[in-house]
Nucleic acid binder design. Structure first.
Length: 570
RNA sequence: CGGGGCGUAGCGCAGCCUGGUAGCGCACCUGCUUCGGGAGCAGGGGGUCGGAGGUUCAAAUCCUCUCGCCCCGACCA
């Protein structure tokens, strides 16, 4: 591709509305442009990288035995009503009506549609296992789209759905996808972790998320320092803490004027936050209840909702707190409370702790379980913290990371096949419910995550497998005929050899060409200048390392070819 | 949904408080010089100041409404 005839609108200044580095660089490198909040145009360079990721995904999905189809974005309400998600999905589901007033939505995911296909066409155990996938535009009307392609409302996703005769066959399908995902993200050159994850609104039995490690990531994940355990903090299990052995002292009410927060109270009393139990009031399916967590720990609402088995869980409003505790917010405590109490495991062994006293400006010291109050149950309902013991091995401790979720695999079980009555006849002629799994990859997000992980002060540093071009040939002086002839020759030779070359034939000053080349992140750069060319040489610069070598033309060609081949065949 | 901020030329911004009919840098066009890390000089084009309404002799500027965009929050005892 000749740069002068291509479309790469780079910009020097960082657009003011871009916050994270990948968003800024994708805008500056002319890869994307915003059309509306969370909705983007893909310009040529951006599209090329996206196509690269898609190609890798396609290869690995096909290798794993999945079969490509393409389903519509526009989906009839009836299917969603059948799965009950028309009501449950909420405002993220973009709904609209056609001219006949029939209701439709733009698909945020395709469980309903794919299950509809399968229930019509799959009748026998002989037709499974079956895994159907597509690469397609999804629409989710996110509360707050942000960070460019990282969290858009319209985005490209690969979604796959597996159909199996029973649970253990479904496990094999799940495992094949899991392994395929590992290969995909390895081939994309990403530093990632596969972590145990909560199943969220999709539902199902268990799942893993594929997280690209990056400080700007929206998710917190943990991994064990010694074993293979890794999980999203939403899901990560906490081990019980060894009990203290202090003798119970007598309960004491202390004045804590204006001290509401954990920090204020513990500082005022001169105790560590771990000696205090905070009492959080929540409303679960309409019922107010109290939740106890150690002062230095945070409540994990997802775990709590699971423990309570409730549908809706929210923090209680100020009014409810005051009504339940009889005190202003900041002084809630478990002693004398009339609502159900659930306590975190880590509080179980605590003795002589501090709590609120359900009265303005008062706390209790030396509170003890059983003597002063008794929670209905102890359960793991907190977020793990850095340094917590690993739940799976005796020696390890948990390390905390930030991650960008680029892929997610779910074992769904029969949630959708039951709702939509997708069944088959087994070898005995008996009707059985199909077992499903679903598997997603955010294509655009993968490109963005890659940039988060691969950039420097000058711009993007693409790994070869998903770079829009492998190599850029920069003709330093476009007016010098010998330079242009040589550069043109390199461009043709490399292109004929299957290397994707962007030929910067623009009549620009060298500085601008170098800046642009760095910004758009092409991994390899051949610089053709009159001085070196007089000696029959060109310069090869590696974007990532900055390494420069002066080579005769034919050697430069061989170098580029072998570097590209090595990167693509790993 | 709550809180905060911003909409002025393609991009980044000033002007607004204290009304008087729009400016800077980059980009773009022309010419000359320059040419290995975002050149210099000279000339030039481009904006119904997000939109609607109001106040006023006069509105980018003041008031009201509205639309769009960005950030934070929606874990707090």
């Amino acid at each position: 591709m000749r740069y002068s005839q291509y479309f790469v609108p780079t910009v020097k200044e960082t657009p003011s509305d871009a916050e994270v580095i990948s968003h800024q660089l994708m805008l500056r490198a002319g890869m994307i442009r915003k059309l509306a909040a969370g909705i983007y145009n893909y310009l040529p360079l951006g599209l090329r990288s996206i196509r690269k990721v898609e190609a890798i995904v396609r290869e690995e999905m096909n290798r794993a035995g999945a079969i490509e189809i393409l389903m519509p974005s526009v989906q009839p309400a009836e299917l969603w009503q059948e799965s009950k998600r028309w009501e449950k999905y909420g405002k993220e589901l973009l709904r609209f009506k056609d001219r006949k007033d029939a209701e439709f939505c733009l698909g945020p995911t395709h469980e309903e549609v794919v299950t509809d296909i399968v229930r019509r066409e799959v009748k026998s155990y002989r037709q499974m296992p079956l895994n159907l996938y597509q690469i397609q535009t999804k629409f989710r009307d996110e509360i707050r789209p942000r960070f460019g392609l990282m969290r858009g409302r319209e985005f490209i996703m690969k979604d796959a759905y597996s159909f199996d005769v029973d649970s253990s066959a479904a496990d094999s399908s799940y495992d094949r996808m899991y392994q395929a995902y590992r290969r995909i993200f390895q081939r994309c050159g990403l530093n990632f972790r596969a972590v145990e994850a909560d199943t969220g609104s999709i539902g199902g039995a268990f799942s893993h998320e594929f997280m690209v490690l990056a400080d700007s990531g929206e998710d917190a994940i943990v991994s064990c320092s010694t074993c293979e355990y890794a999980a999203n903090v939403e899901k990560a299990e906490a081990r019980p803490v060894a009990p203290e052995h202090a003798e119970p002292r007598s309960l004491e009410r202390v004045e804590t004027p204006q001290k509401r927060s954990v920090e204020e109270v513990t500082a005022f009393l001169g105790i560590p936050a771990s000696s205090l139990i905070k009492t959080l009031l929540v409303v679960a399916d309409g019922e107010p209840l109290a939740v106890l967590v150690r002062g230095d720990h945070d409540l994990n609402e997802i775990k709590l909702a699971k423990v309570l088995g409730c549908e809706a869980l929210e923090m209680a409003s100020e009014e409810i707190v005051e009504k339940v505790t009889g005190a202003p917010v900041g002084f809630a405590g478990p002693v004398g409370l009339k609502v159900r109490i659930v306590a975190d495991l880590a509080t179980q062994g605590m003795r002589n702790f501090v709590t609120g006293a359900n009265a303005r400006d008062l706390h209790y010291k030396n509170v003890n379980f059983d003597r002063d109050f008794a929670p209905e149950r102890f359960a793991d309902i907190r977020n793990v913290v850095h340094g917590d013991p690993c739940p799976r091995c005796p020696a390890g401790h948990l390390e905390l990371w930030r991650g960008i979720e680029v892929g997610h695999v779910f074992k769904l079980g029969t949630k959708y096949s039951e709702a939509l009555r997708a069944t088959y006849l087994d070898a005995e002629g008996k009707e059985q419910t199909i077992f499903m799994g679903c598997y997603g990859i955010g294509i655009g997000r993968t490109v963005a995550a890659c940039i988060e992980q691969n950039h420097d002060a000058d711009g993007i540093v693409f790994p070869i497998p998903i770079a829009p071009f492998h190599c850029i040939v920069s003709a330093v002086n476009a007016k010098d005929a010998s330079v242009m002839t040589a550069a043109e020759g390199l461009y043709r030779t490399l292109t004929d050899a299957g290397v994707e070359v962007l030929f910067d034939d623009r009549d620009e000053r060298p500085g601008s060409k170098f800046k642009d080349a760095d910004l758009i992140g092409i991994p390899l750069r051949l610089v053709v200048g009159s001085k070196n060319l007089a000696e029959g040489k060109v310069e090869l610069k590696i974007r990532k390392s900055g390494e420069v070598s002066l080579l005769p033309l034919d050697e430069a060609v061989e170098q580029v070819k072998s570097l590209v081949a090595a990167a693509l065949n790993q």
